[in-house]
């Protein structure tokens, strides 16, 4: 090779090498910047809520000065107020009861349905899976008016049993979709082995398959909880007594009058509800992604 040409090329490559180091550093920095920025923006209202839940009340709306009066130690007064003097604990209990019951109903309906769609090869399997998922797209806001009539007819008006009855229409379709993904990931061999060993199809399902999709089951429980805690339209329409409301409608309803003391307490309440739900979801995020991924 020509010596001069080789040296020129070597210099050019050196330049490229330095340039790619710079690009790498910039890319890493961008990842960290976006991650930090996203975390901050996503948490912003809750962070602010958390701060204000522990600062002293400034003495009524309209007072001048910054949003927080500095120089005073944090106070637990608002949090105490929240748990002692507001219906917040009742809201939380209602939400927990509704969430648990909905999770149970969802599993009872969705697990067998998902199994039928994943395993028992019927020609209508795929269309049925699609149809069930599409039900998820029917919004509560389209149905709540007629539901309020149905609920009244059934004598469930102003009772959280109405929510237990109706919420699975939201949770079952997604859960069927998710569990079908999980079940398809369980090798058929394992189940056939159980059947060769003398179990019926049903026995094989209960004894071998169900334990293997346990992570999927837990993911569905988390999802059912999150969806039913977050639902708004039905809860607003069916339940109007304070003592029976879940968190999602109870808190906004109590805040209708703009008492800042109550507001500050409620910010603490929002964080109190938000963080456990996010923790549960975070634990199962990878499983969730795995369940959503199409199996090719």
């Amino acid at each position: 090779m020509n010596g001069v040409a080789a040296r020129t090329r070597a210099r050019e490559l050196d330049r490229q090498r330095r340039w790619s180091v710079v690009r790498h550093v910039v890319a890493r920095a961008a990842v960290y910047a976006v991650a930090a920025g996203a975390a901050l923006v996503c948490a912003a209202p809750f962070l602010w809520g958390l701060v204000t839940a522990f600062v002293h009340d400034r003495g009524g709306p309209g007072a001048s000065g910054g949003p927080i009066r500095t120089g005073r130690a944090p106070t637990a007064e608002h949090v105490r107020f929240l748990f002692r003097s507001t219906p917040f604990p009742a809201f939380v209990v209602n939400t927990l009861i509704v969430g648990s019951l909905v999770a149970v109903v969802t599993l009872a309906l969705a697990l067998p349905a998902a199994y039928a769609l994943a395993r028992l090869n019927r020609s209508w399997g795929t269309p049925a899976r699609m149809a069930i998922l599409l039900v998820y797209l029917v919004p509560p806001s389209l149905l709540f008016l007629s539901f309020s009539r149905i609920v009244a007819t059934l004598g469930l008006a102003d009772s959280f049993w109405a929510l237990v009855l109706v919420y699975p229409t939201v949770t079952v379709p997604v859960s069927v979709w998710l569990l079908t993904g999980f079940l398809k990931a369980v090798p058929v061999d394992i189940e056939e082995q159980a059947m060769v060993d003398g179990h019926s199809r049903l026995g094989a399902f209960a004894r071998v398959v169900a334990p293997l999709v346990f992570p999927g089951v837990v993911a569905v429980v988390v999802l059912a909880f999150t969806l039913s805690a977050g639902e708004f339209a039905y809860a607003l329409t069916f339940v109007w007594s304070n003592a029976r409301m879940p968190v999602s409608t109870g808190m906004p309803a109590r805040l209708g009058n703009g008492d800042p003391l109550l507001w500050q307490s409620m910010q603490g309440g929002a964080v109190f509800v938000a963080v456990p739900l996010a923790m549960a979801a975070n634990l199962f995020l990878d499983r969730f992604v795995a369940g959503v991924t199409p199996h090719r």
């Binding site: 080789a6 090329r9 070597a10 490559l13 490229q16 090498r17 790619s20």
Partner: peptide, 12 residues
Amino acid sequence: GGHLANGLPPRL
């Protein structure tokens, strides 16, 4: 080709 490739991206 006689040139150090460490640190160079694949395309080069």
